[in-house]
């Protein structure tokens, strides 16, 4: 039973915001020098419990307390600012050691509550061990339909017949190209994912982003995350570059992001 739901609103004093967990023996606060927390006036601390330490920073409950934070959450600007701070702290952690990223919004009233949470989550230590020496890289694939069509020019029936017949042939060709494009996306997503998975420790397929939520013109056909050895990074990028040059003429644009803290390689049941 959690008592969290019945905590009355607290609007004064200080709480703790927790970003993630790191191995206590390896992490040091020096890794966070100059890094600001979600409250920009506070630096980052490590709260140690056994083999694991929480990466945390103090926050004013007037802003992050029960009730108060719900008001802040109505502002996209506020959320963007805090989400970026969360990411920046975890990136600093990643430079020093393995890290288990927590989802946004783990806020505690005191250090003893954080220690209790670290004790309750017994899988933190083995997960940190599993993630040691690796980072997450993100790969997306987009298909530019104009370039795809151009690459398929000259294939299929030619629309050289006169009048209405030419129109029908053109329509037929349009339909065939659209179907080809879809089939190509499926095949290319599979091929790319298999090629990259072969040079990664672990891999996850992520949901494709809806077109209106994507900043790109092309149609997204691949969205994936790879857990890559920091030492095997060159090999991964070689494989990525090979895919890029192989499929550029087909109209494919790939995007590589990261290194990220391994957000996609920690499970909720920990």
């Amino acid at each position: 039973m959690s008592t969290a739901a019945r905590t009355p609103p607290v609007r004064e004093g200080t709480g703790w915001y927790v970003y993630g967990a790191v191995p206590a023996g390896e992490a040091s606060v020096e890794a966070f020098a100059g890094v600001r927390g979600v409250d920009p006036s506070a630096g980052v601390s490590l709260i140690v419990e056994g083999p694991v330490a929480a990466v945390a920073s103090p926050v004013p409950l007037a802003e992050f307390g029960a009730g108060a934070i719900d008001e802040r959450l109505r502002s996209p600007e506020w959320l963007e600012d805090k989400v970026r701070a969360h990411e920046a702290v975890l990136e600093a952690a990643l430079r020093g050691s393995a890290v288990v990223p927590f989802r946004f919004g783990a806020i505690y009233h005191g250090e003893s509550h954080i220690r209790q949470m670290l004790r309750d989550h017994e899988l933190l230590a083995p997960t940190l061990e599993r993630l040691r020496g690796a980072v997450e890289l993100g790969v997306k694939g987009f298909l530019d339909s104009a370039r795809f069509r151009a690459s398929r020019e000259g294939e299929g029936p030619q629309a050289s017949a006169p009048g209405g017949r030419a129109y029908l042939l053109r329509k037929q060709r349009e339909r065939a190209l659209t179907e080809d494009g879809r089939a190509f996306q499926v095949a290319c997503a599979r091929e790319s994912h298999e090629a990259l998975t072969a040079v990664a420790r672990e891999a996850r397929l992520l949901p494709l982003r809806q077109p209106e939520l994507s900043a790109y013109e092309g149609e997204m056909f691949l969205n994936a995350a790879y857990l890559v050895d920091t030492t095997g990074d060159a090999q991964f990028r070689e494989r990525f570059a090979a895919l890029e040059s192989e499929h550029w003429r087909d109209g494919v644009d790939y995007e590589l992001t990261g290194p990220w803290p391994p957000y996609n390689f920690v499970e909720d049941d920990e």
Binding site: A4, T7, G65, P101, F102, R103, Y263, N264
Partner: peptide
Amino acid sequence: RVLDKGIVVAGDI
């Protein structure tokens, strides 16, 4: 990542 992934721990708030 920050809003959809990472482990979910029950905070006090």
